[in-house]
């Protein structure tokens, strides 16, 4: 019988993220142990509901002991889903015949992106990143930079990640200070009302 995955397989980044980090993305990282019928294509009934609620699968581990003959398959999944979407997700699993054996600890993930305009590289970019990373409560999660002509200011999108909105705001305060010292312009998202 064909298996959806070979034993002890870890699959990363199964679904592409549809999350937009410019607006504060408040997500929950949650691990789950699921049980489903061991038949071809069953993994879709796990992946699809997650993708439908705008979530992102971080890893899938499924263990199968070839010695044990069983018609059910256990899957351990780690995913990131928008805050408040766990209930609908569980409901959707139920409808598709996927049982949830265990739900692991939930961890909040907040991301906010800002745009920095200035001489980011010439003003020691690793120092700038270090100011956030060394706080212990927030970290620079992603950077994407558009390089300008020599001596022109560069434009960079910086995404900061933390475990709460309050900590994101604290990190932003630090970044604003750095920006003042290093003379960058920070463009922040307009908060949602």
């Amino acid at each position: 019988m064909p298996f959806p995955f070979p034993p002890y397989n870890v699959v990363k980044d199964l679904s592409r993220s549809r999350l937009k980090y410019f607006q504060d993305a408040i997500n929950v990282q949650v691990s789950m142990k699921l049980e489903m019928k061991d038949s071809p294509g069953q993994l879709v009934s796990v992946i699809q509901p997650i993708s439908e609620i705008g979530g992102n699968i971080l890893s899938v581990i499924h263990e199968r002991d070839p010695a044990v003959k069983s018609d059910v398959l256990d899957v351990q999944i780690l995913c990131e889903i928008p805050e408040g979407s766990l209930e609908p997700l569980l409901e959707s699993f139920k409808q598709r015949g996927v049982s949830v054996l265990r739900i692991g600890e939930e961890r909040l993930l907040v991301r906010r992106s800002v745009i920095l305009i200035g001489h980011l590289i010439h003003t020691d970019i690793s120092d700038t990143i270090g100011k956030i990373d060394s706080t212990g409560f927030a970290e620079v999660h992603a950077l994407s930079m558009i390089m300008p002509a020599i001596n022109e200011p560069s434009s960079t999108k910086m995404t900061i990640k933390s475990d709460s909105l309050a900590n994101i705001n604290r990190a932003l305060d630090i970044l604003r200070d750095v920006a003042r010292q290093k003379e960058f312009l920070i463009i922040e998202p307009l908060e949602d009302v």
Binding site: I146, P153, L185
Partner: peptide, 13 residues
Amino acid sequence: GVTTAAIALAEEQ
């Protein structure tokens, strides 16, 4: 101080 590149970064999303 706003650059065209900064707007382009925003427009990507």
